[in-house]
Design a protein around this nucleic acid. Sequence first.
DNA 1: TCAAAAGTGTTCTCAATACACCCATGA
DNA 2: TCATGGGTGTATTGAGAACACTTTTGA
Lengths: 228, 228
Amino acid sequence: MDVYLNKDKFYVAVDCIIFGFEAGKLKLLVFNRKIDPFKDSLSLIGSFVKIGESVSDAAIRILKEFTGLENVYMKELKTYSSVDRDPGYRCISVAKYALIRINSDIKKKVEENGTTWHEVDNIPQLILDHNEMTNDALKRIEKNARYKPIGFELLPEKFTIPQLQKLYEAIYRRVLDPRNFRKKILSHDIITKLEEKDRKGSKKGAFLYKFDHQKYLNMQQSGYNFEV
Amino acid sequence: MDVYLNKDKFYVAVDCIIFGFEAGKLKLLVFNRKIDPFKDSLSLIGSFVKIGESVSDAAIRILKEFTGLENVYMKELKTYSSVDRDPGYRCISVAKYALIRINSDIKKKVEENGTTWHEVDNIPQLILDHNEMTNDALKRIEKNARYKPIGFELLPEKFTIPQLQKLYEAIYRRVLDPRNFRKKILSHDIITKLEEKDRKGSKKGAFLYKFDHQKYLNMQQSGYNFEV
DNA sequence: TCAAAAGTGTTCTCAATACACCCATGA
DNA sequence: TCATGGGTGTATTGAGAACACTTTTGA
């Protein structure tokens, strides 16, 4: 393919920065490219946007293709548009990010598609400006987590308070006091205690909770602050 | 020009949502189009992005063209990319916004270019999705103003505390207590009192202040909260 | 002299923080 | 029985919110 032809017109791409949480670590979904361009390099999952779809549609398509997930709300990070950001195309890329819950279905699908989870503390070299995108996304979610209960999207439907705390510690990169954390989270009244215990984490076991979407919606309407 | 040709490839545009503050009102810069497409309609200021420039470069070019301003940092709002958002082109638009200081130079330039300031409480019908962009931008600055001293960009270099308060009241769309406002602003220690008074607002006159950029930078580094 | 805006202090309430021990259980 | 993580309460501090009067001065 003649490189110069691709510089004559705009291509629009979307790159998806997908975070998951597993084993107490925040992780990024990385694509081990077995396809050109950039065969055998690592990248975010992404695609050119087709002429007949919106950027969001393309992002949804990609996420479904790689994880099988539908109905995940991806937030827009920003647009990357330097003239020379991609040597092969005059391409602007819209970066979108989401936090997802890792379960066995997704694990399987992810493996089949040649993607792997990498701890955010140790992200490998990615193609083009994908490392920059990832860093920008990490900054964004750290900031956003202070004002939105962003973390619940990453945990299984039933989770314990210590699990939730570990997640926030991973996002903030600092340790939190368990008494204050528990008090703060419960004060928001958006999680419901269940009768069951999870005994994976300890012998005593920790009570499971679930997120109460209805109460969260009510809270949103009355101007909230989710700082922990 | 054959419309269908324009639907075969992506066009990239940038639209700039420029806010100013004048006479106690927050205002939007609107372009009274004397050019096609959309001759005689109103729009935001904007342009197609050229193949050899980034989206930011295009935004800077447009802002300079319409206001004469350089060195204004425009923040990215988001990308608008519905397939049918523009009937004439397959065009995605990146919306950028900024808050600027209205002075006599700008007033003159703005007039020459066929643009006018409209109060944000009373924005006319704009073309395409430009009203949506404007509403999204207003929501964004309202949210951001809580955590950044966003307002200083809109005021003249020397300003009084009552002027600053009116600006925040315009952004938040509610009245603030003058004692608490003054206390909060001064506690941040990022404005410096001058010896001069401004007597335009009252017979007694109000002391002028100026924004201390250096102190603001220091404050940013140590994790700040600018809520008023 | 008075109208109009500028400027000032105190009290109350609430949320954030710091901090240490007992509990339940499987190994 | 003991090591491991889960669960609890209190005291202190600081910031936000509510609130009313005096000052200045040009008209």
